[in-house]
């Protein structure tokens, strides 16, 4: 399995997808930006691109482009609550360093 999700994450993703009422799944990806070089992408997907791969993780279609896949192998997506704030968190074994805020990383 390329990536995994915690129960909390898959439950939230399913409800957000249902609420949106359209779309074919959830995109995980990386893009080059930020203070430490790479940043995560988390988006709804309406159509697939040519280099996309689709994985079924806990009944959710997870879409990852082939370039990002190399950096995301083995990543776990979690949904956590910190005080009043809640959101998704990536645990990525490929990441070697993160910037102070954790929003970008390098490999």
């Amino acid at each position: 399995m390329a990536v995994t999700m915690t129960a909390a994450a898959s439950e939230r993703v399913k409800s957000f997808l249902a609420n949106r009422g359209k779309g074919i799944g959830l995109r995980l990806g990386i893009k080059t930006t930020g203070c430490s070089g790479l940043a995560y992408v988390l988006e709804f997907v309406d159509e697939l691109n040519a280099d996309d791969e689709v994985f079924e993780v806990d009944d959710v279609n997870v879409i990852i482009d082939s370039k990002s896949l190399a950096y995301l192998q083995g990543t776990e997506l979690d949904f956590v609550k910190e005080g009043l704030n809640e959101g998704f968190q990536f645990t990525n074994p490929n990441a070697k360093g993160e910037c102070g805020c954790g929003e970008s990383f390098n490999v």
Binding site: F16, L42, E43, Q89, F90
Partner: peptide, 11 residues
């Protein structure tokens, strides 16, 4: 670690 939200495609 900052927490992320799901964005609209390309946003």
């Amino acid at each position: 670690m900052a927490l992320l939200q799901i964005a609209e495609p390309g946003q």
